[in-house]
Design a protein around this nucleic acid. Structure first.
Lengths: 253, 253
DNA sequence: CAGTGGTCTAGACCACATC
DNA sequence: ATGTGGTCTAGACCACTGG
C-alpha cells in the first residue's frame, strides 16, 4: 500500500512527465519546513521515523533529505540527527552569505554600526524587485560594516513593511547576531538564497564621507535580492564597498 | 574478496580516520580522468562495468560518480551514459564561468578581440599565485570582450609558459570557442575550478581608451586564479569591466 | 548502551536513448 | 530489443554521539 501517487503521472505541456518518489517526499518536508513545523536549529524526525510515517524505505527518505541538505535547508550531523538550518550559528552560515573579506585573508567578522531606519513607500525599481505594488510600505535601514574599526561597507537594506512590523532601531541594536539571524528569530523570515549583481560606481558625497574616501572614488556596488520559501523576495540590499584593503570573494566550481 | 583495503585504516594526526569505499572509487576515477584515460566529451565506462571492474556494487560506483558530477568533472545523461565534462559545449559550461551579463538579462555570448600576446618572466605576485619560481616564463595575453560590438571587458591572462608551448596569436585567432576550450583541446589543460577576487578600481589611461570611458572612471576588477587537477594553478586572469550596462552576476544559495 | 546518520549490497524495476 | 542511467527496496553493518 502506497500513500503516494504512482510515480508516473499525466503530463500537461512542459511539466515533467514524472516525479520521483524522493522528490515528492522532499516537497512534503519542504512544506513542513515552510510551515515552521520544526524550529530553526532544532532536529527533524529521524530518517527511520520519517520512512515509516511516509510508508517509504529509509533510502528514499535519505535521498530527499540529502537534496534538502544540498539546498542548505537542513544540516546533517552524524550520530546526532538532521537539523533545520539557521543563520544564528555564526561560523557555518555567515561566510556563505558574507562575501567581503580582508585582503590578508583573515576570516574576521565585521562589526555593524546602525545609521538610521525609516519607513516609506517602495519606489518603482525596488517595488519590482521585491514584487510589491508601488506605494506599498517598506522599511529602509542604513548601516556601516567595519573591519578592525575601519568603515568598509555602507549598506542600504529595504524590507517589505508588512513582514517586519515592529522593527525598530532599538531591536536591531539589541540583537547580537547577523541581520538574517534577526529576521529569522524575531520575524520568522528565513533567508534561503539570494541573487547578486556587482558593479563599480563612483562614490557620492555621503558614501565618500562615511567610508573615508574622496567623492568620485571607485566603490564596489553589490545589489542583492534575497528570497525565502517559494522564491518570495524579502529583502533588497545595496552595499557600497571600499576595496582598497578588502575584496569580494567568489569561488567558481 | 575485496581489492580495496578495509575501509577503516590507521589515522595519522589529522587525516580522516576512515575513507568510505565510494570515495576510494572516486579517487581512482579521478586518477583516470587526470591521466586523460577517457577524452573530454567522451563517455566513461558504464556503471555496471566499473562495478565489476572494481569488484564493488553498482550503488557504490554510482555514489562515486555522483560525487564527480557534483564537482562538474563528469556529466550524466540518462539513457546515454556518463561523459567527461568539457569546456567546448557552449551553453552548458560557458555561463558557469563567465559571470558578466548585460543588465537587460539577455544571455548573450561576447565576442573576443585579441590585442596582443607576449612572453616574459613571472613577477613576484603572479609567480606566487601561479606557484612558479620568480623568473619562470609566462605568456601574457590581452584581449577585449565585446557585447553587441561594445567593448566591456579588458582581460589580461597570464599562463605558465611551460604548459602552453607553441601558443601564438594565430592559434588563438583560429580557435572558434572559449579560451578554456582552447586550453583543453590544444594543450590538454583542463580548467576545473577557480577563485575570484573583485574590487572597484579607477581606469588607467589604456583601459579608459580601450573601453571608451574617461580616465579614472570606476571599473570592476575581477582577478581570477584557475586550477586544474590536484589544485594546480594554471591561469591568472585580471579583467577590467565597464559596468554601465553590464554587471557581474552571482547566486548565493 | 541505544540512537542517529553513513555506507554497502543485491536485486528489481523504470525512464530514456538508440538501433 | 538492448543498454544506459535513475529509482526504490530491504537489510546488514559501520561510525559517531551522548547518556
Amino acid at each position: 500500500m502506497r500513500p503516494m501517487k504512482p510515480a508516473t503521472r499525466a503530463s500537461t505541456a512542459e511539466t515533467p512527465s514524472f516525479q520521483p518518489l524522493y522528490l515528492q517526499i522532499k516537497a512534503l518536508l519542504l512544506q513542513s519546513l515552510a510551515a515552521r513545523e520544526w524550529s530553526p536549529g532544532g532536529a527533524i524526525p529521524a530518517e527511520h521515523e520519517l520512512a515509516t510515517r511516509f510508508r517509504v524505505s529509509q533510502g528514499t527518505v535519505r535521498k530527499a533529505i540529502e537534496a534538502l541538505a544540498a539546498d542548505n535547508l537542513v544540516v546533517r550531523r552524524q550520530g546526532k540527527g538532521t537539523f533545520v538550518a539557521t543563520h544564528t550559528e555564526e561560523a557555518q552560515s555567515t561566510f556563505r552569505v558574507l562575501r567581503i573579506r580582508a585582503d590578508d585573508g583573515r576570516a574576521e567578522a565585521p562589526a555593524s554600526r546602525l545609521l538610521d531606519l525609516r519607513r516609506g513607500k517602495a519606489g518603482g525599481e525596488v517595488a519590482r524587485l521585491l514584487e510589491l505594488r508601488p506605494g506599498d510600505g517598506v522599511v529602509t535601514i542604513r548601516r556601516v560594516l567595519e573591519w578592525s574599526g575601519r568603515a568598509v561597507v555602507l549598506d542600504e537594506i529595504v524590507l517589505p513593511a508588512v513582514l517586519f512590523r515592529g522593527l525598530t532601531r532599538a531591536r536591531i541594536a539589541a540583537y547580537p547576531g547577523s541581520m538574517y539571524g534577526l529576521f529569522e528569530t524575531q520575524f520568522g523570515v528565513r533567508m534561503l538564497n539570494a541573487e547578486e549583481r556587482l558593479k563599480a560606481v563612483a562614490a557620492d558625497a555621503f558614501a565618500a564621507r562615511t567610508l573615508g574616501v574622496a567623492a568620485g572614488a571607485p566603490l564596489l556596488a553589490v545589489e542583492r535580492v534575497a528570497f525565502t520559501f517559494g522564491g518570495k523576495p524579502v529583502e533588497f540590499r545595496r552595499g557600497l564597498c571600499e576595496t582598497a584593503f578588502h575584496h569580494y570573494a567568489n569561488a567558481i566550481g
